[in-house]
Design a protein around this nucleic acid. Structure first.
Length: 826
RNA sequence: GCUCCAGUGGCGGAAUCGGUAGACGCGUUGGACUUAAAAUCCAAUCGGGGUUCACCCUCGGUGCCAGUUCAAGUCUGGCCUGGAGCACCA
């Protein structure tokens, strides 16, 4: 065995061997239980960054650990390869996005292989290839058939810089998620997926996801934004037959309504405006239109509004109150109209104060009554000034008051969601074309399934500005109507890349299928994903869309599960000097450089070592250095004592004291490492345990001048256990040592180390003696001692005797095999 | 404003059930090896105080204030700080 550790040489050799021997092939047929370990697939942006390295290393270690534990592990990789950057790069360099994408995939594949990841590359999926997007288009058609894909004209988010519309989920603080420029509202006809039909199931089924963090689940719950309340219809006094319905979560406050607000875009607003008020209302509405979304939604802004001149009648009291328009009412939410109760709603209160509108208290806390002169009372209480409902608790009144509306026919119970339908069309080239045809005779017609895929045209001009390059194709638009066979035009929009990524994980189960999107049996066999690993930035976007698509596909009979990801690990960011690595800050670390200088095993070890996976990880050069030193130490441990290691060791008891100790430490390490991985993937403590075991073996070796036969056996056991325990992380180093020891099969096909609970036990324990909960002494005791003898031992301890002299012992608490606490008085 | 997460040495972080706070590493300091350096190895490393000063003793210490308990980093209540998400959502 070579004296020095040369990772680059070792790693290259083993990567080639694994590929040649197809070591990470995953058969569909196996008598082992299945395990699906999945990383969020990358966008082929050009080069791997450290976030990728962290993500894929975590999943790889999980996959390898599960494989050694006897699972048939599916661990695939693919490319989320449609999207705007490719198109932008194409425009800039005059190339085709496909060429740019292919080059990036080739380079990043090389990098992934250098990291030593155990992918079954035969299952690779690439969303921009026709054999994949054919099925994305097929999925669109199925959703269309089910009424879950539809086209409507609506106010949508438009990013001028990207030249396309965006889904609600892609607008972050009023800005485009990709280019950070301010998003405008435009009124356009667009394709939507009806995710709102699944709002309740998407919310309800969050409860099933025990393997997801609360943070992600609450983010999704917030996004879905369920609220329960009532619709109440108010008659307009001045106009016979016209009603204004409002949605409210506070029907208990209806007797306190003093005005009503409609959004500036409210559909009946012109009818509701009297001639005297027309000019002011028109001006107000024009002003609201001009304002940006951000300005308008700012909670900081002082509320403004104008009266319409008409009035509504409160069906509960017969009272009249004025109608106003104000931009704090949102046309997209509820009915676009709000009943205002200034006494019990802070927004209404602010507004009423400003415009001197009347207030009426209807809910009170009997213990601490408020007149609502200075602020709204929004807590629970008892109803007053509410006729027949007086004295009722407001929580109960909600139901009773709504029930009255139902009985009298002017309202109903209503559940409201904040979630909007998913806007999926994009005015861009580099995406899956929407398989829809427009025919003058037949209208909107879905393309026939047998005509899929609708291929992206190649004869396009990428240098155009202000419109989608796809529209420059002289051939693409022209087609025939699938129904009447007459001349027709193709849909020019492509699909949001999130449609492609909402089902890719299913395709891994059956990646080459050219007849179907996948075989139902195979997808049911491999899914749901047992462990999904990726960034928190997808908490809503990708994870919500995927859950929706899974449920929709289940309803179509394509598969039998309704949640795609059983367990989700959201890994933290990779930081450098306390802030996120980014090109603009210039604090990036190039993985290639780390591979070159230290090797992939060091990179893998380090990226797992310093923080638990869910937390942010601070990259430090010293830390890399430290990991590299550790691997050198392990290498040296083996190479310097090579003649004393035999792969066919045999441990025979009884052993000498120090050999017994070493065997015990190995068993403790196996137990600890196995638990740390199995419980929460606590790789940072796993690695500290590698180090502890290595230190222990060194301490043992340093005391040896020569090795007896027993020593050789024990030492071999320790060293071989260590490299096996390390093999999911330091994949090349472990494989190299394994073969140096004369093995001919891969260490990655070995079974995981097993521990013996009895051998992990020490014969002596450290007994902690406390007085009144404070540690006073620590003594050795036999492992098997019962509580009574531990108590005696503690009370007879000289130091304790001294401290308890002349004191009354009130109580003695014994924690088995650990601690004795003596409670004294005086 | 609402929701979720976190807060432990100089730093990253350990600590099954409430039971020895600070594992392991980084850094720092001292030492060995060397002509010297690098590399490597060994040792020390929470703070205050005491002392018969390489030993040992003692007090304090896990964001803050209370509480429960024989015992609290861990449980309960109330705050403070940081991060994330949602937000004129009626």
């Amino acid at each position: 065995m070579k004296e020095g550790y040369f990772p680059q040489e070792i790693e290259k050799r083993w990567q080639e061997t694994w590929e040649r021997e197809d070591t990470f092939n995953t058969p569909n047929e196996s008598n082992k239980p299945k395990y699906f370990a999945l990383s969020m697939f990358p966008y082929p942006s050009g080069k791997l960054h450290m976030g990728h390295v962290r993500n894929y290393t975590i999943t790889d270690v999980i996959a390898r650990f599960k494989k050694m534990q006897g699972y048939n592990v599916l661990h695939p990789m693919g490319w989320d390869s449609f999207g705007l950057p490719a198109e932008n790069a194409a425009m800039k360099h005059g190339a085709n996005p496909e060429v740019w994408t292919d080059e990036n995939i080739a380079y990043m594949t090389k990098q992934l292989k250098m990291l030593g990841l155990s992918y079954d590359w035969k299952r690779e999926v690439t969303t921009c290839k026709p054999d994949y997007y054919k099925w994305t288009q097929w999925l669109f058609l199925q959703l269309y058939k089910k009424g879950l894909a539809y086209k409507k004209e609506a106010a949508v988010n438009w990013c001028e810089k990207c030249g396309t519309v965006l889904a609600n989920e892609q607008v972050i603080d009023g800005k485009c998620w990709r280019c950070d420029s301010v998003v405008e509202k435009k009124y356009l006809s667009q394709w939507f997926f009806k995710i709102t039909d699944y709002a309740e199931r998407l919310l309800e089924d969050l409860n099933k996801l025990d393997g997801w963090g609360d943070n992600v689940k609450t983010m999704q719950a917030n996004w879905i934004g369920k609220s329960q309340g009532a619709i109440i219809r108010f008659k307009v006094k001045e106009i016979e037959g016209l009603e204004v319905p409002v949605y409210t979560t506070r029907p208990d406050t209806v007797h306190g309504i003093t005005y009503l607000v409609v959004a500036p875009e409210y559909k009946d607003i012109e009818k509701l405006t009297t001639p005297e008020n027309k000019q002011a209302v028109e001006e107000y509405r024009a002003n609201a239109r001009k304002m940006s979304e951000i300005e308008r939604l700012s909670t900081e802004r002082v509320k403004t509004g104008v009266p319409l001149g008409t009035h509504c009648i409160n069906p509960y009291t017969g009272e009249e109150f004025p109608l106003w328009t104000a931009d704090y009412a949102l046309v997209e939410y509820g009915t676009g109209a709000v009943m205002a109760v200034p006494t019990h709603d802070t927004r209404d209160f602010d507004f009423a104060k400003k415009y001197n509108l009347p207030m009426k208290v209807v809910i009170q806390n009997p213990e601490n009554p408020s007149d609502c002169k200075d602020s709204a009372y929004t807590e629970e209480g008892i109803l007053i000034n509410s006729g027949e409902f007086n004295g009722m608790k407001n929580t109960e009144a909600k139901k009773a008051i709504t029930q009255k509306a139902v009985d009298k026919g002017f309202g109903e119970f209503k559940t409201q969601y904040r979630l909007r339908d998913w806007l999926v069309s994009r005015q861009r080239y580099w995406g899956a074309p929407i398989p829809i045809v427009y025919c003058d005779k037949c209208g909107i017609v879905p393309e026939k399934e047998e005509n899929l895929p609708v291929l992206l045209p190649k004869d396009v001009d990428f240098s155009v500005v202000g419109k989608s390059p796809i529209t420059t194709s002289p051939t693409f638009a022209e087609t025939t109507c699938p129904i009447c066979g007459g001349k027709a035009r193709r849909e020019m929009d492509t699909m949001d890349t999130f449609v492609c990524s909402s089902w890719y994980y299913m395709r891994y189960a059956d990646p080459k299928n050219s007849e179907k999107c996948f075989d139902k049996n195979l997808v049911d066999k491999w899914l749901p994903v047992d462990q999904y690993v990726g960034g928190i930035e997808h908490a809503i976007l990708h994870l919500l869309y995927s859950r929706f698509i899974t449920k929709a596909m289940k309803d179509m009979g394509c598969l039998s599960f309704d949640e795609p990801f059983k367990n989700l690990l959201t890994q933290g960011m990779v930081l450098k000097d306390g802030s996120k690595m980014s090109k603009s800050k210039g604090n990036t670390v190039d993985p290639d450089e780390i591979f070159e200088n230290y090797g992939a095993d060091t990179a893998r070890l380090f990226i797992l070592s310093d923080s638990p996976p869910a937390r942010d990880f601070d990259w430090s050069d010293a830390g890399v250095e430290g990991c590299y030193k550790f691997l050198n130490r392990v290498w040296k441990l083996v190479s310097e004592n090579f003649e004393n290691i035999t792969k066919d060791y045999k441990i025979e008891f009884p052993l000498s004291r120090e050999n017994d100790d070493l065997v015990r430490l190995v068993h403790i390490a196996i137990k600890g490492i196995t638990n740390d991985i199995a419980q929460d993937f606590q790789f940072n403590t796993v690695i500290s345990k590698y180090r502890e075991l290595t230190n222990a073996i060194y301490n043992w070796v340093n005391k040896k001048t020569e090795f007896s036969q027993e020593d050789k056996n024990v030492f071999s056991f320790a060293v071989i256990s260590l490299i096996k325990l390390m093999s999911p992380v330091t994949v090349h180093l472990s494989e190299e040592i394994w073969h140096e020891l004369g093995n001919t099969t891969s260490i990655h096909d070995e079974k995981w180390c097993e521990f013996d609970e009895n051998l992990a036990k020490a014969s002596k324990i450290t007994l902690v003696i406390q007085i009144n909960g404070k540690v006073k002494d620590k003594i050795e005791a036999d492992e098997g001692s019962d509580n009574e003898s531990l108590k005696t031992l503690a009370l007879n301890n000289n130091k304790i005797k001294e401290l308890t002299a002349n004191k009354e012992v009130v109580k003695v608490i014994v924690v088995p095999k650990k601690l004795v606490n003596i409670v004294i008085k005086g």
